[in-house]
Design a protein around this nucleic acid. Structure first.
Lengths: 191, 191
DNA sequence: AAAATTAATGAACAATTATTCAATCATCCA
DNA sequence: TGGATGATTGAATAATTGTTCATTAATTTT
């Protein structure tokens, strides 16, 4: 054995890539710039990633997984339905907010043909806990009995839209505005 | 005067560009392919557009304007509030649906740094009629009195989300599902 | 401490692709 | 009809940028 790979470099590269994609988009992403931003030589990036395509797909998965973990922290599906729903709604909002940049990347990527189908599959899993919860709500008669996808649209749609508005500087987000939106959404779906 | 420019070529070029962007994303868009797809020589594209960047920005505006026009057809703000709201909600849904591809392009572009700020400004105008209507609704006491951005998030967010789900093959969209979503949304915002 | 091994470097190279432009073609006007 | 004008062409060129690899540096083992 000799010198070891320094796997912390992978995260450095991820951070640099994320930063550059957000600044200049996929089309403007250059491997040389990624390396420079991460204080590495161009060739080093190729030690840790097969090629540019691989780098972008890995980054997507990395961010998606990180978001999922954050988002599920402290959620216990065994608790009272209304409480879990509230917790999960706010958790989703807050995590998406606190990682606006990552979320923007994920959205941009989701719409792009870089996305490999297996990656897309994994990415759907993030909403699974919400999905399950909604089914439970319908069964328990706590939610209106419509297709779960419809309920889901009503739940995460406004969050995404509000964050987009925030991103455009059109609205402020604080405890009050979050609560107001929550009230509107719940009034809609609760039976 | 001699031979005239054939401005119908512009639309040919737009259609080709749209098709290719949807297939391969911004990063994969090649001027030579755009030209070929439009049955033109590469150089011809440069007669009608300054460069690649110009082409993409023009395309964005073209699609945005087309969508706006379609979407506002048959809306008369002088009619009864509830009726206008219903018409406008369904019109927005249907136009977004019937032009899923264009909408996907617009979303992808919106998140990308290609977007010039003046273009972004113009693009905000598309929601102006909904915006105005919501303000009227609040004044007339027909809607809950919260920030209009919050109401807007609740109105268009679920539509975008549902269409995304449809795009992923997760849900069917028909008169019934549309109506169900409409009921949920309205139950939330109406006073 | 020196040899062995592998990471890291970054200039050079190979592809790829945007853009140009000399030559050609189509249309208009006298 | 013929010359003038400007549109169109697409191969050639200019840029850009992904990837490689000979060389150097760092770490481990003997």
């Amino acid at each position: 054995m000799a010198r070891h790979r320094d796997y912390t470099k992978i995260e450095q590269i991820f951070e640099s890539t994320l930063k550059l994609v957000l600044e200049k988009g996929f089309a403007g992403l250059k491997m040389a710039e990624v390396a420079k931003e991460a204080n590495l030589a161009t060739g080093t990036v190729y030690i840790y990633f097969k090629d540019k395509d691989d780098l972008i797909n890995q980054l997507y998965l990395f961010l998606k997984r990180r978001k999922t973990i954050l988002f599920l922290q402290g959620i216990d599906q065994k608790e009272d339905f209304d409480l879990v729903l509230k917790k999960i709604w706010f958790a989703y909002f807050e995590v998406t907010m606190q990682h606006v940049n990552e979320s923007a990347f994920l959205e941009q990527y989701y719409r792009s043909p870089f996305l490999k189908s297996n990656v897309k599959e994994e990415s759907k899993q993030i909403l699974k806990p919400i999905y399950d919860l909604l089914e439970r709500g319908v069964k328990e008669g706590k939610l209106h009995s419509v297709n779960v996808e419809i309920l889901l649209s009503q739940i995460v749609g406004p969050i995404h839209e509000m964050i987009r508005a925030y991103h455009d500087g059109a609205v402020e987000i604080n405890a009050e505005t979050m609560n107001q939106l929550y009230q509107l959404v719940m009034r809609g779906i609760k039976a």
